[in-house]
Amino acid sequence: MASVLGMLEEREAAARVRVEGLREEAARLAEVLEAAEIELDRRVIAREELVEALAVSAAETAAVTGAERETVVPSPVPGSVVPPWRDGLPVAVLAPDYQRILGVLEERRSAGKGPVMAKEIAAELGLGTMPGKVEGVRSKARRLAERGWLLLEASGMFSAGRRPVAVPDAGSSV
């Protein structure tokens, strides 16, 4: 019987080792499971936050583009992008330099004067007629014309006026 008892003790010890190994494996898997659950929770929260933010953004966009839209005018900053002109878009969306150029042309139109060269615009703005200043004004005036805020005559002269334009890449120039 001693040999049968010895065999049972050996089997018991092997079972004990196996149980201990499985307990260690279960503890390790519990840690892995906990880490995976934390990651899942983070991703669910991120998705919910994104969906909420997109819903708010869509609601704001719908409110602005609706039939009863209020004019939302972002504060322009020097060097900001010139958006394409569209009906109802106020001049206030433009950076101050662009607003001043439009102001000069609007005053000329009100006074019954015709188109003007960039050199004259620069002079009326008090920038002088130095080539660098004139080219800066010409560049800005061309950008305004490309975006529909004013008119560029075939002669290279500029005049006040608006026209809708389709500009596929309006954000590329400042």
Rank of each mutant, 00 (worst) to 15 (best):
P96M: 12
R28N: 11
A145P: 01
E37M: 03
A53R: 15
R16D: 11
E146P: 00
E48H: 09
M1V: 13
I45D: 11
L54H: 09
R42E: 13
E9Y: 02
A166Y: 00
V44D: 03
E12F: 07
L151T: 08
A2T: 13
R28V: 05
A59T: 14
V64K: 05
M7G: 14
E107T: 06
A118V: 14
E107H: 05
R47W: 11
V104W: 07
G66L: 12
G103M: 08
V4P: 00
A35K: 12
P74Q: 04
L40P: 01
S155M: 14
D169I: 06
E20G: 01
L54I: 13
V72S: 10
V93W: 08
P74R: 12
V137M: 14
V91N: 03
L5G: 01
R162P: 01
S3W: 07
A59K: 14
A67G: 15
I101N: 02
E39I: 02
E9M: 08
P90I: 00
V64R: 14
E10T: 09
E20A: 13
L29P: 01
L54N: 13
K113R: 15
E52F: 02
V51Y: 04
G21P: 11
M117E: 07
E146H: 07
E70H: 10
P78D: 14
E34C: 04
A53V: 11
G161P: 02
V134C: 02
V17H: 05
A14E: 12
P76V: 12
R143A: 09
Y98R: 11
D169V: 06
G148Y: 04
P168C: 11
A13P: 01
E10Y: 03
S159A: 09
I38T: 12
A63P: 06
E24D: 07
V32L: 12
V77Q: 04
E135Y: 03
P83V: 14
M130T: 14
R43W: 06
A118E: 02
V77N: 02
E39N: 04
A55M: 13
V104I: 15
L50N: 04
E106A: 11
E107K: 10
E106T: 06
L105D: 06
A2I: 15
K133T: 11
R100W: 08
G79A: 04
W85R: 02
R28T: 07
V72A: 10
G66H: 10
P168T: 09
P90M: 03
A160D: 14
E153W: 05
R109L: 12
G79C: 11
L144K: 05
M117H: 09
A145F: 08
V165K: 00
